[in-house]
Each structure stands twice: as structure tokens, then as C-alpha cells.
Amino acid sequence: MTAGAVVITAADGSLAGLAERLRDARVPVRERPLLRFAPPATWAALDDALRHLDEVVALAVTSPRAGRAVAARHEVLRGRGEAGPLDRVTVWAAGGASAATLRHLVPGVRLPDGARASKQGAAARLARAMLAAGVAGPVLFPCGDLRRDELPRLLREAGVEVREVRCYRTELASEADARAVAGAGEIVVVTSPSVAHLLSRACDGGPRPRLLAIGPSTADAARGHGWEPAAVAARADVDAVLEGLHALLAVH
């Protein structure tokens, strides 16, 4: 294990600028993605949902990746004259980065109040905000094949119909790769519950580096395997992650 080294396991394109800012601060850093994202095998399901937006009252987006997929496919369909009326649907986003992917299509994207300070997971916070606003459904929920179930579960428990549609695939690295990553540094930055599960399985019974988990859902996934994060960044942005890393490095 390299003393003081920070290993970033985020997918390429995520947490852009984090590695550079760590290097500027003379912190050893290694970028070792443990997951990648790919398009779905077919866009048919998402395209069909976007053609029939008049059948839903709201669109819920919990990640920038899902937002970009919706925006790209809506523009393709609009070019063919097939897109549904996105401006007649209330669009909700879990955070500012997700909202930004859709604002060129829908200026009035709604966000939960107090998103930066809340300790809830982003999806749960969004679901509760939608329920508080009286969203009755149906709700279109574009998501990946690996995702937490807080938003659809909370909405369905309240009697709201949720229509899930896959808009990207998550491809995880092998456990052997995860073990190698865990040994590559002293602090490992983990951005998602799926990677927390992968690392926990890979390091079961072996040495575990200090973990900086991004978001409460990722932290809970690690705790479920008996791996208490050394720090939890409240948000998936570079400033929040740097704040957590600087605190960990200061007590090294």
C-alpha cells in the first residue's frame, strides 16, 4: 500500500478535476476506475417513453448520466417529429448537476429544498420532495440497471405509479481488479454503492484501506459489509470530496 496515496475509483469523466487538484497539492493520486457506463442494448424503451410523455405527470432524474441520456434521445426524437411534450411535464432532479443536463430543454427543473445540507440519500430526498409537492403520478424514472430503490419504493409506498426505464448500463470491474485497487493507496474514494459492495467483497478477510464514501447511500453500503468509512462526503462534487480528503490527510 502506498503511504498517503489517494485512489479514485470513479468512472472516467466523473469528479472531473479532482485528480489535478490533488496533484497540485502534492498529494499522490492514482485514478483506477472500478466501473464504466455504457448505453443500453437498445434505446427502444426510453424512446417509447419519451414519445408518450403525455401519459406521465412528472419525470424524475437522479443522476447527470440519466439526464444526459434523456436530453440526447429527446433531441433525436424531436428531430424526427416524434418527441413528446417535455415542457408539459414537471421535471425533477436530485441535484444541480442532474438539473443542468436538462435545463436547455426545460428551464424550470425542480430541486428538493436543502439539498446541500441534507443527510438523506439524493434519491430519497427527491422522492420526499415530490410527495410533499403533491405529485400524484405516473412518474417516469429513467435509470441505470444498477440503482438504489429509494425513489421508486418511496413513491410506490405512497400510491404513486412509477414507470422505470433503463437508459444506461453499469459494468463493474472484477474482484481481482478491486483487490489491486485497494492495495494501491491509503485512502480509496468510492462514488457508488455498487463499487462499495465490490470492494467489500474483494477485501473480505484482507486488509482494507481507509474509505472516503460519497453520499450516505454509498456509506451505508460499506457499513453493510462491516467497513466503516473514514469519512463521508455529503455531495458528489470535487469541493466536498476535497474537504473530506484534506481532513483525512491532516490526521495521517
Rank of each mutant, 00 (worst) to 15 (best):
T2I: 13
A3M: 09
A5E: 07
A5M: 01
V6P: 01
S14R: 01
R21L: 12
A25Y: 00
V27H: 00
V29H: 09
R32V: 11
F37M: 05
F37C: 10
P39N: 02
P39S: 04
P40Q: 07
A41H: 08
L46N: 04
A49S: 08
E55P: 07
A58P: 07
S63R: 05
R65I: 08
V70C: 04
V70I: 02
E75T: 11
G79Q: 04
G79D: 14
G81F: 00
E82G: 15
W92A: 07
G95E: 06
G96V: 01
A99D: 04
A100F: 11
L105A: 12
L111G: 10
G114I: 08
G114M: 13
A115T: 12
A117G: 15
G121W: 04
A123N: 09
A123P: 13
L126G: 01
R128T: 13
M130S: 01
G134Y: 03
V135F: 12
P138F: 07
C143M: 03
G144R: 06
G144I: 06
R147F: 10
R148I: 07
R156H: 07
E161V: 08
R166K: 02
S174N: 00
E175K: 05
A176K: 04
A176E: 06
G183Y: 10
G183L: 02
A184M: 12
E186L: 07
I187L: 10
V189L: 15
T191W: 03
L199F: 02
L199R: 08
L199E: 07
S200A: 15
A202Q: 05
G206N: 10
R208F: 15
L211I: 14
I214S: 14
G215Q: 11
G215H: 03
S217Y: 15
A219I: 14
G224F: 13
A234I: 06
D239K: 06
G244F: 00
V251H: 12
